[in-house]
Write a protein that binds this DNA or RNA. Sequence first.
DNA 1: TCAAAACATTAACCTAGATTAAGGTTTTAA
DNA 2: TTAAAACCTTAATCTAGGTTAATGTTTTGA
Lengths: 178, 178
Amino acid sequence: MCLTRKVTAYFQRYFSYTEPLYTIIKPNEIKIKRGQVLQRAGEINTKIYLVKSGLLRSYIIDSKGKEHIFLFASENWIMTDSTSRNLPCKLFIDALEDSEIKIFEKGNEEKIELQKILNRLEALQNRVIMLMSSTALERYEHFLKTYPEIVQRVSQRMIASYLGITPEALSKVKGRKA
Amino acid sequence: MCLTRKVTAYFQRYFSYTEPLYTIIKPNEIKIKRGQVLQRAGEINTKIYLVKSGLLRSYIIDSKGKEHIFLFASENWIMTDSTSRNLPCKLFIDALEDSEIKIFEKGNEEKIELQKILNRLEALQNRVIMLMSSTALERYEHFLKTYPEIVQRVSQRMIASYLGITPEALSKVKGRKA
DNA sequence: TCAAAACATTAACCTAGATTAAGGTTTTAA
DNA sequence: TTAAAACCTTAATCTAGGTTAATGTTTTGA
């Protein structure tokens, strides 16, 4: 069962490459279905995505084949791999819900509202602080408080992955809380 | 011995507040001595520091009184707490070497070369990826490769703190490597 | 509409790294 | 210049969270 899951993930991510399906709404704005992949690690991708509606996630797959969610991005958040624009990306990006997305090019960051970039910096800073200095329980409670709207929209598995723990560990934490 | 160290850290950080000692070089540019504290967690600080020479570090002190280094900043890197400018900071910032620093105000980020902000985003992304998906050994080797010039300039204790492990664990990792 | 896949939870056991302690070395500051 | 403080390492022990496995539930897609 575990093996099935891993093999499936690998298959989807690495072998069953298909062009992303999307509908053009207006210039630089597209609509994609849940599950569509916008970017794969190893590819060069020069896009910055701004979520108008829906929910995206970025994640890595580590050397053991395990996924770790890097960030969620809902309405008004930026989603991108911050690797320099001529180098291979490290992150996968896909849609957790049907989404509408505005697309910018790396190199044109000045066209993006500066505050959105600063928000991203602040979110990443908090992410590092949490990962370095808090227990699984503390990180979980912080997540519930900070992103209550995301909590409703994703599975326990996704939350665990974002927190940097296994779903089993998250179940344990929730059990201890109650 | 351990207790002495902890109490000393607390004393310095929380109780022995003194205005930072610095020399003004030119408008918005100062020179500070090693050990000088530029920012304490809990304070509101509206500055962004650009290191012209020397070495700064930012770190947090967690609920158990332990320090965790957030980032180092050497020549041409930005050092700041990315918390919004009207909220209390989370990071302490001090100088690990005598340093010359250019000072910007939060809210005037457009005066900072955009590439420096993008570099910061990339560094933070790599930091999160490392913390989430690599062992202590892998993080150590990545650090040696990515920041060889920093390795020469800081103690093992600082490197361990940056990697998110104890100095004892770092010693063990180095022992296993050799 | 219904089988297969994915998800959630509990439990038994395992391990990377934390904690504590101790001893030798280097740095600091009075 | 020298005592105190900080640093580095090794080793014994502990623990948060990982791994594996099993069971029941929900979702998905052909």
